[in-house]
Amino acid sequence: MTTTTPELVLEARGLVKRYGHVVALDETDFEIRQGEVLAVIGDNGAGKSSLVQCLAGAVQPDEGELLIGGQQVTLKSPVEARHRGIETVFQSLAVSPALDIASNIFLGRELRMPGIAGTVFRRLDKKRMREESLAVMSQLGLQTLQNIGQSVESLSGGQRQGVAVARAAAFGSKVVILDEPTAALGVKESGRVVKLIQDIKARGIPVILISHNMPQIFEVADRIHIQRLGKRVALVDTADIDMADAVAVMVGAKTPAELGLAR
């Protein structure tokens, strides 16, 4: 069993989630360390989505515990998860197409003008929101978007992904969860997301990457969490496994023990 060490940013122990008779999570464990990219892989029905949703606060586990920085927490909603520094880029991106980039990045936590303009007239500080959006977009290598004030619907799929990721990265969060970030993207744009993940990591923020895209995972991930039948069957350094074995463990063709993996 894992012990709580300070370097674990987010940890889960014995998570159980049932939907009627279906057991989506069967006492699964989870951990992510400071500064790493952790890929979560698993076949359909392995409980990847349920795990991510528990970590993101979107669903509540029936049993088990969640620890952030070693402290036990319960996450009742994505909003609460966000307050605790867990930013999730959902597969649907959760962007508002008709709003501009800056409004999307600050959606739900807008900045108001200082003084009476903000307190009495509730005036938004659009200038500051745009500047800060631009700053975080630049840090992520997205500064060449023509205009931070342009609407998100005028962006390509990859650029929208960039906006959603920038939002997650913008708020100095403890961990960023990317749920299938390349599922809806073309080859070129997928390459771009890889770079985004590396840029978030460069900012010192650990990333949980849920993906089916094996080459991409082996390109960016430090460790791989393999989920199977509602359990974590392996947690390995990417360097210690190859793609074929990872897939074999994922689908149950090989057991981790056969491969000499610790877990």
């Binding site: 979107a58 909603s77 994505p78 909003v79 966000r82 959902f90 649907s92 991106l93 959760a94 962007v95 508002s96 197409p97 008709a98 709003l99 409004s103 959606l107 739900g108 936590r109 807008e110 108001r112 007239f121 509730r122 005036r123 938004l124 659009k126």
Partner: peptide, 24 residues
């Protein structure tokens, strides 16, 4: 145009699920 409430009105009408997930 200039208040958070105004922005949220657009956000709710534009993509209600996204609005919910962003904490509105």
């Amino acid at each position: 145009r200039s208040t958070a409430w105004g922005t949220h009105i657009y956000a709710v009408g534009d993509n209600i699920e996204a609005a919910r997930l962003t904490g509105i």
